[in-house]
Design a protein around this nucleic acid. Structure first.
Length: 876
RNA sequence: GCGAAAGUGGCGGAAUUGGUAGACGCGCUGGACUUAGGAUCCAGUGGGGCAACCCUUGAGAGUUCGAGUCUCUCCUUUCGCACCA
């Protein structure tokens, strides 16, 4: 054993041992299984300190569960399709396939030294044909059963680059590369009918996902956005034919307050009215300009224009004018709304702007209604009753909704309906680097599915996008094919699938990555549903909802037997860093790397400012921010690992804060972690001879002195805390428990001579055996080395197969204990009493304390509260 | 605008869920050892006060023998949704 801790040597040796033993390869062999998985990363090529934290959380969890006896699966893969590879291709002229595979190799190489216990034999790369062929296969299955279908979609179109833009590529209504004004275009695409599962997805949130964080469940529920109301129509006549202008409302009770109707600019009735109305046509065109993102639409001012067209009120028979309004969404409900300015804040504002009549039909006792200004109670459906509504007068809102819905139904004009905010999932992307949609377009047969036996449709990997559209459209080798139905020459679909398709089911493929004949095989019954999924909160809605939907479709096609894929979900926090800047004379803001800055403190340790090392002149504190290149506050794991080793990086990232919250990187925190590991090493080095000496004293008959008993108690108390915190995934306090153990060991004054030597050796051996095992999941390398050097391996086998230490209840026992004495709830003293003491004995002990008596005085005792093991409170 | 979460020393954060607030670490102060140390070790470190004591978990109320923890009203920050009819 070397005297000094040398992380590089320790870590290389430990990893060599694990490799030689194939320590993390896992098979489906009986026993309780535990499947824990981190969301698969995009291979950007750079490993981030944030990755280190995320995967260490996963690794700590699984190493702990292995020690608890579980058969643990912890896989890793790559979300390898997507836009960044195409952007890199445009910038660097490299094929996305080459760029992506190189990045994967780089990232894997950076991950390796961290000592993560992945079973690499199950690695998945989503751009491999062996993987994405099952995207294609399942897509065809979904087409067969009607879950997948084709329809037109509205997209952002860049008329200069001739390409479709994602919402985030539209900046101020212009293409991010070309700067051309973006148009909306209608093009055909494939959709998945996730709305068919809306109710089940919502019920699952409420009933089955109790292992998920509440914010995520809430976000999913809001995203699905169920609302119950009435769908009905306003009759009108068009070219002599009776028609209905259908609307959806949750407030049918306000139907008698309707003073106008409003339709979306894309509504067919709007187009009809605009034919002889150039002003209206111009207004509609104006509304359709700009991006399609909803956030942009929401910021636009409410505008509308009357059409001059009228419909009939379904109950009163009044003539109601139809308006076109930009705040009505074609995609929600019927693309048309009834306007009730009296009881809807938005309609109220609209009516005020265009001088439309406002009619009160709901009253609340004690509240005065005025059309001058909006008040929140106008829209309240709880306390109101109907007025000016004919036969419905006096009803409560819920009663009126039922009565009005029944009357509409009786006239054949409407019915109660449940709608969802959730919309079908459009999976077509006019992009090259993705899974080809397995469809062939034939001039006579139309869109024909590729036969199953012809899968996979392989994506050519040698194309280099240049920014002007999808290169597949120019690749004749790919395009040319024969129609599977009529055998004539045909062309392949060039759209590819959304990358959310890849991530919707990859975690199932880990269970049987080598299954060549099927998407998944029977091994999935062993591993799934996953016990613990780990990922960022940013995936709270889309990815997790798509994965749940995909699972339910797989279940309905009898591929799997479970309803929900992820039993528990853990959302880990981000790693942030300080940043520093100086505004230069040129007006430019210069960001300093934290290592270029010295922070100054006053005598109390309060920071007083910071100066740049290069010139000693002050710099400003920019606060704590997400690590980003532009702010110069990125820390590369490589630097930390080279200087201090992987264990220090792991230890720091676990100790920095609770794993579910964001944490701040700090150099002194890294130093502190390194200091602890060095102390641990040197303590063990100092005790190696004691531990090597033969000892007759077995722990069973261990009767050592008070110092020995105190040490054992401290160690086991810390073990109990660590075990509790491992179970609730609070690894920062696990680390703190380990620090307490080492502090206790270092502080213990144990005899090392004569008869007591054996007892001391036994106590220290027991304590270190526990400490090394508790610390192992966090810092597996140094503990591996110390376990061997101190002779534990010879007795108990390898550390990575060791079992979790049990708390010895006997060691925690004590004869007397300190309890707190309160007088009127204020802390006034501490007394030692027997553990077995009852309330009476505790009271007597408390009253015997001089300091306590000072506060009790001769006042009569009104009440005594005794909490065994904690305190006694004297109420006077 | 709607919804959610969170505010604890100079800092990161503990407090096993109503029972000793500030564990553990960082930083800072003093000391020891040193040619030197930004290495290591020892001691101190929420605020006020000479002291007895008093105050202290964003602010204010409330429930309770007892509140960081529960309730209400504000304030601040972060996140999510964003015209959802």
């Amino acid at each position: 054993m070397h005297e000094n801790y040398d992380p590089a040597a320790v870590e290389a040796a430990a990893q060599a041992d694990w490799r030689a033993r194939n320590a993390y390869r896992v098979v489906e062999s009986g026993g309780a299984k535990f499947y824990a998985c981190s969301m698969l990363p995009y291979p950007s090529g750079k490993l981030h300190m944030g990755h280190v934290r995320n995967y260490t959380i996963n690794d700590v969890m699984t190493r702990y569960m292995r020690m608890r006896g579980f058969n643990v699966l912890m896989p890793m893969g790559w979300d390898a399709f997507g836009l960044p590879a195409e952007n890199a291709a445009i910038e660097q002229g490299i094929a996305p396939a080459v760029w992506t595979r190189q990045n994967i190799a780089d990232m894997k190489a950076q991950m390796q030294p961290l000592g993560l216990s992945f079973d690499w034999s199950r690695e998945i790369t989503t751009c491999d044909p062996d993987y994405y062929r099952w995207n294609q296969w399942f897509f065809l299955k979904m087409l067969e059963c009607g879950i997948a279908y084709r329809r037109t979609q509205t997209v952002n179109w860049d008329p200069v680059d001739n390409t479709v833009l994602a919402n985030e590529q539209v900046i101020d209504g212009r293409g991010w590369r070309s700067d051309a004004v973006v148009e909306k275009r209608e093009i055909p695409g494939y959709y998945l009918r996730i709305t068919q599962y809306a109710e089940e997805l919502l019920e699952g949130v409420a009933r089955e996902l109790d292992g998920w964080p509440d914010p995520v469940r809430l976000m999913q529920a809001n995203w699905i956005g169920k609302s119950c109301g009435v769908n009905f129509g306003f009759p009108y006549t068009l070219c002599g034919e009776p028609q209905l202008l259908r609307v959806f409302t949750t407030r049918a009770d306000t139907l008698m307050g309707v003073t106008f109707c409003a339709v979306a600019p894309e509504h067919p009735l709007a187009a009809h009215c605009a034919r002889d109305h150039p002003h209206l046509a111009a207004f509609i065109a104006e509304c359709k300009r700009g991006g399609v993102s909803e956030a942009q639409l929401a910021l636009a001012a409410k505008q509308g224009m009357a059409t001059g067209f009228h419909v009939t009120h379904p109950l009163s028979g009044e003539r109601i004018e139809v308006w076109v309004a930009n705040y009505v969404l074609m995609a929600y409900g019927e693309g048309a709304v009834m306007g009730v300015p009296g009881h809807d804040a938005r309609d109220f504002a609209f009516a005020k702007k265009y001088a439309l009549p406002i009619k009160q039909v709901i009253a609340v006792a004690g509240q005065a209604y005025s059309t001058d200004a909006w008040q929140d109670w106008y829209a309240d459906a709880r306390d109101g009753y109907l007025v000016a509504s004919g036969k419905y007068d006096g009803m409560s809102s819920p009663q009126a909704i039922d009565a009005i819905a029944a009357d509409l139904a009786a006239r054949g004009l409407g019915e109660k309906q449940t709608t969802y905010r959730l919309r079908d999932w459009g999976i077509s992307r006019q992009r090259y680097w993705g899974t080809p949609i397995p469809i062939i377009h034939c001039a006579t047969c139309g869109a024909v599915p590729v036969p199953y036996e012809d899968l996979p449709v392989v994506l050519p990997e040698d194309l280099v996008p240049d920014g002007s559209g999808n290169p597949l459209n120019k690749d004749e080798r790919f395009l040319r094919c024969l129609c599977p139905r009529c055998g004539e020459a045909a062309r392949r679909e060039t759209d590819t699938m959304d990358t959310f398709v890849d991530s919707a089911w990859y975690y199932m493929r880990y269970c049987s990555p080598d299954a060549h004949e099927a998407m998944v095989d029977q091994r999935i019954d062993y591993w799934m549903p996953m016990d613990q999924y780990i990922g960022g909160i940013e995936h709270a809605v889309l990815h997790l909802l798509y994965a749940r939907f995909w699972t339910k479709v797989m279940r309905d096609l009898q591929l799997v037997k479970f309803d929900e894929p992820f039993t528990r979900l853990f959302t880990q926090g981000m790693l942030l860093n300080e940043c520093f800047y100086r505004d230069e004379d040129s007006g430019r803001r210069r960001w300093f790397y934290p290592s270029e800055v010295d922070v100054r403190y006053d005598d109390r340790g309060k920071p007083t400012g910071a100066v740049a090392r290069e010139d000693g002149a002050p710099v400003s504190l920019g606060g704590i921010e997400k690590m980003s290149k532009s702010k110069n506050n990125v820390v590369e794991p490589r630097q930390v690992m080279q200087q201090y080793g992987a264990d220090t990086a792991r230890f720091f990232s676990m100790f920095a804060g609770p794993p579910d919250q964001s944490a701040v990187y700090s150099d002194s925190g890294i130093e502190g972690a390194y200091r602890f590991l060095r102390r641990l090493w040197s303590y063990c080095h100092g005790r190696r001879e004691l531990l090597a000496s033969p000892t007759a004293a077995a722990l069973d008959g261990f009767a050592g002195g008070a110092a020995h008993r105190q040490l054992r108690r401290q160690i086991y108390l810390a073990l109990a805390q660590a075990d509790f915190d491992y179970r609730r995934l609070q690894y920062n306090t696990v680390v703190s428990a380990c620090m307490k153990m080492l502090n206790a060991l270092e502080a213990a004054e144990l005899p090392e001579e004569g008869d007591a030597r054996g007892a001391t050796a036994a106590a220290v051996r027991e304590a270190l055996g526990i400490l090394l095992r508790v610390l192992y999941p966090v810092v597996p390398h140094i503990t591996h080395a110390l376990w061997q050097a101190l002779g534990f391996r010879a007795v108990h086998g390898e550390l990575f197969t060791a079992s979790w230490p049990q708390v010895d209840a006997h060691a925690l026992e004590q004869e007397t204990m300190q309890i707190v004495v309160q007088v009127n709830g204020k802390l006034r003293g501490r007394v030692n009493i027997a553990v077995s003491a009852d309330e009476h004995a505790a009271k007597e002990a408390a009253l015997a304390d001089a300091h306590v008596m000072k506060f009790v005085g001769d006042k009569p005792l009104r009440r005594v509260i005794f909490v065994p093991g904690k305190l006694v409170n004297l109420v006077v």
